[in-house]
Design a protein around this nucleic acid. Structure first.
Lengths: 248, 248
DNA sequence: CGGCAGTTTGATGCCCGTCAATAGTGGTGG
DNA sequence: CCACCACTATTGACGGGCATCAAACTGCCG
C-alpha cells in the first residue's frame, strides 16, 4: 500500500479521523492535504481575542489552548492531541477564546474555519465527529474544573497524569507501562494551577511513595494504578467513557 | 396578540430562541410546548454518570451544572440561564458529565435528547444556534478556568459578578443598575472555588471600598464599574463578545 | 569546557480553609 | 402579634498548604 502524502510512518490520517462515509473521508483527506503544516515547539499559531482563522487537527505532537493573564501567568485550558479537532472560536464566532501554541514539534492540519464549516454542511456524516469532539472537550473541562476549584495539589496532579495518559495512549490507563508526556514540570503546573516548585515536590513525593516513576521530560511509569486513581478521585474506566471520544 | 401556551407574562419563548426560519421556529415551539415543566428550587433533574435523557432550555429561573467530589463538596461547572440550551452529555454520548439542578424556581423545557437531535437534523437553521451556544459555553469555561487556576479570591469573585450580570441582564454590564443574582454566598463560593466564609469577607471588603453594594440574596448594585473590571481583569465589552451568544 | 534549561531542595510568609460564635432574616404556626 | 425555627450572613482566631525567593544540582548541546 502506498503512503498518502499526509500520512506519517505508515500511519495514515484515516486512523485518527473516520467519518464513516467514503465521500466524506475523501473530501476530508483533501482538506487535510491542502492545509498540512509543520510547527516547531513553542510556536504560537493563534492569539486570544484575535480573529479565529483556523480549526486545528494535529496528527503528531501536542498543542495547548491557553490564556495569559495581565501578570503574564499562563493558564492552560486544554491540550489538543493527535486525533482531536479544535476550534478556538468564541460566542461572537469570529474571535478566538484562547491562544493556540505548539507544545513540542507538531505536524498538523490548519483548516480555514470557513472551509471546515462548508465541509460540515456538505458532509452530514462529519457532524457526528464534531459533536463527539465537542462533548469530549466539555467532559474534560468539567472534570478539570472540579479539581481546580477545591482539590489538593496531589489530587490535581494525579488527575492530570491519569487524564493525559488516557488520552495519549491507545492502550488506556494501565500499570507498569511507559507513557511519554511532552511536558516540563512548569507546563504541567500551568495546566493544574500550581507553581513548578510545588509540582516538583508533589510528584516527587508520589515517586517516593512508590506510586509511579518518572524521569526527564515526563517519561512516566505508573506502578500502583489503584493508589494513583484514588489520589485523582477517579475510576479509570468511567473517566475514559467521559473524556475520550468514542470511535463509534 | 394571543399568548401562546408556552409564553410567560407576555414574554414569548421566541424572544429567547430564534432560528431565523419560520418552519424551524414552528417545530421548535411545538417541541417546547410538549416538554415544558416547572421545577422548584434545589430540585435535581439529572445526575452525573447516569444516562443523559434531556436537553435543558430554561426560560425563567437558573439551573446549575455541577459535580460533587467524594468528600461531598460541590463544584459548579456552569450556570444555565434563560435563553441557553444545555446538553449534559459526555464523550460517550449517552452519559451525563454533570449533575443538573434548579437554583431557584424554574420554568423550562426538558427536550428528550433524541427528539432534539432529530430536530437539529431536520432543521438545518437550528445548527447555527447550537454551535453558537456551544462556543459561548466554551468561552465562559475558558475564562473561568483562568481565574480558578491562579487568581486571588477578589479577582474570582469580581469576575463571577461581571460574568453573571452580563448574562443575566440584557442591558449588559453598566454601573448603578440593580442586578438580581439568585445565589447565596455559599453557592457563589461553589462556583468560584472558595468557602462561603471567604466569599463573605471578600465581597464585604469590596462593598466597604465603595465598588459595589449588595443585600439579601445578592441584589447587586455596581458603583465603580472600572474598579470592578480591574479586579476581575476584564474589559466589559470584550468579555461580552467572548461569552454571550450573538443573536445574529 | 561553559552555558542554559530544567529539576531539586530549603526557608519564609501569606492567603484562604476550618472551627466557632453571634446576629440578622424570612417563613410558619400558635 | 409574637415565638420559634431553619437558613444565611458576619466576624474572629488559628493553622496549613502552597507561592515565592534563593541556591545548588543535573543533563544536554555547541
Amino acid at each position: 500500500m502506498e503512503h498518502a502524502p499526509w500520512s506519517k510512518n505508515g500511519h495514515p490520517v484515516a486512523a485518527y479521523w473516520n467519518m464513516g462515509c467514503p465521500n466524506a473521508n475523501a473530501a476530508f483527506a483533501e482538506l487535510i492535504r491542502v492545509s498540512r503544516r509543520d510547527m516547531r515547539a513553542r510556536c504560537v499559531m493563534q492569539l486570544a481575542s484575535e480573529r479565529a482563522r483556523h480549526v486545528f487537527l494535529p496528527f503528531a505532537g501536542w498543542l495547548v489552548a491557553a490564556k495569559v493573564d495581565p501578570d503574564g501567568a499562563r493558564q492552560i485550558v486544554d491540550f489538543v492531541l493527535p486525533g482531536d479537532v479544535f476550534d478556538p472560536a468564541t460566542a461572537s464566532t469570529a474571535i478566538a477564546a484562547v491562544d493556540v501554541a505548539a507544545v513540542d514539534n507538531v505536524q498538523l492540519a490548519m483548516i480555514p474555519r470557513k472551509a471546515w464549516h462548508g465541509y460540515l454542511e456538505t458532509h452530514h456524516a462529519a457532524w457526528a465527529l464534531s459533536v463527539r469532539q465537542t462533548a469530549a472537550g466539555y467532559g474534560r473541562m468539567a472534570e478539570r474544573m472540579l479539581r481546580l476549584g477545591k482539590s489538593s495539589a496531589e489530587t490535581r496532579i494525579a488527575y492530570a497524569i491519569c487524564e493525559l495518559c488516557l488520552r495519549a495512549d491507545p492502550f488506556g490507563l494501565v500499570a507498569d507501562r511507559a507513557f511519554h508526556l511532552p511536558l516540563t514540570q512548569q507546563v504541567l503546573g500551568e495546566y493544574v494551577g500550581l507553581s513548578s516548585v510545588h509540582v516538583n515536590r508533589t510528584i516527587r513525593a508520589m515517586a517516593r511513595a512508590g506510586v509511579l516513576d518518572y524521569h526527564g521530560q515526563l517519561e512516566v511509569i505508573i506502578h500502583d494504578l489503584a493508589a494513583l486513581a484514588a489520589m485523582a478521585q477517579i475510576d479509570p474506566a468511567e473517566l475514559r467513557a467521559a473524556i475520550i471520544p468514542s470511535p463509534g
